[in-house]
Amino acid sequence: MNSIQLNNQGRLKHFLDIEGLNRKLLINILDIADSFLNIDTKAVKKVPLLRGKTVVNLFFEPSTRTRTTFELAGKRLSADVLNFNINNSSTSKGEALIDMLRNLEAMHCDMFVIRHNAGGAATFMAQHVAPHISIINAGDGQHAHPTQAMLDMFTIRQNKGDFAPLSVAIVGDILHSRVARSNIHALNILGVSEVRVVAPKTLIPTGIETLGVKVFNDLKKGLDGVDVIIMLRLQRERMKSALLPSAYEYFQSYGLTESALKVAHPDAIVMHPGPINRGVEIDSSVADGPRSVILQQVNNGVAIRMAVMAISLGAVSEQDSN
C-alpha cells in the first residue's frame, strides 16, 4: 500500500501507482474524467480549476503522447505548464534529482509530472517534496504508468459499460512493461472476471501469477473469447539480452492480425498504448480497423490526466486548510 499517495482525509494527493488504491477512488477518477470530456464542445476549451497554479512536466525519458496530453490537460485546467525534457546526459552533469527538486520548489511550482527510467523515481520525489506540492507519475522504469492504466480503464468503460463480466488479454512484452503492471492492478481492483497475459516465456516475468493473472504462451489460446485486447509495444530498446529471435518471427507468433482476432469475442476491442510498431506486434489492418479504439485512447488521455491533476491539487489544498 502506497499510503503516501493519500492525504489525511483519504483523498488522492500524489498519483504514483495504481497498486494500493481502492475501487471507489478509481471510479471517482473515471467519473470526473467523464465530465471533462465535453470540454471540446465549448468555445473556450478550458475550465478555471487550476488557474494560477504551475505544473512542471519533468521528462527524463523521451515521450510525445504522454507529455503532450499532460501539457494539454494542464492548459485546459488553466494552469501554467512548463516542460523540461531532460536527457540522461544532462543529469550526468552531476545534478542529483533531489537538488533539481529543491530548485524547482524555489520557483513556487505546485505540481510535478515526472517520467523517469528508474523505477520508484516518482515515489522518491513524493517522499522528499515540500508538502504543498503534488507529484504525478507519468511512467517510472518498468514499475508503473498509472495514468495510462486509468485512460485504458476509461476507454474500456466507454465501450463495455460494466467491468465485472469482462475477460481482458494483455499481449506482448509483459516483462518490460509498466503499462502491463498498472493495467493488471487496475483491472483487478475494478473487478473484471479474468485478466490474461499472453507472451513468449522470455517476455513473462517470473511470479506474475501472484498479481492475479492467467499466463498464456500461445496467442490464439490467450485470445479465445476475450472482450478486450491490450497490445503492448515490443520494447526493443529495453532488451539487453537476446530474448527474441527477430521482429519478423515475433510477428508470426504474437502479432495481432485479422486472423488471430477471429478467436476473440465478436465485439472485442483492440487497444494499444502507443507508439505502435506496425508489422511487429500489430498488423496495420487491425490497428486501423473497426475494432481498434487506439485513437479514442489518446483523446481519453487528456480527460483522465485533467481528472488526476484536478483531484490531486484539490486534495493538497484541502490538506492545507485543515
Binding site: S35, P48, L49, A310, I311, G314, S317, E318
Partner: peptide
C-alpha cells in the same frame, strides 16, 4: 463545480451531473 471560487479551499468533490 469547475468554476467555483473556493476550489483552493475545499478541493474537487466527486459529482456526476455534467453541464
Amino acid at each position: 463545480a469547475f468554476y467555483r471560487d473556493d476550489f483552493s479551499r475545499i478541493g474537487l468533490h466527486p459529482y456526476v451531473n455534467a453541464t
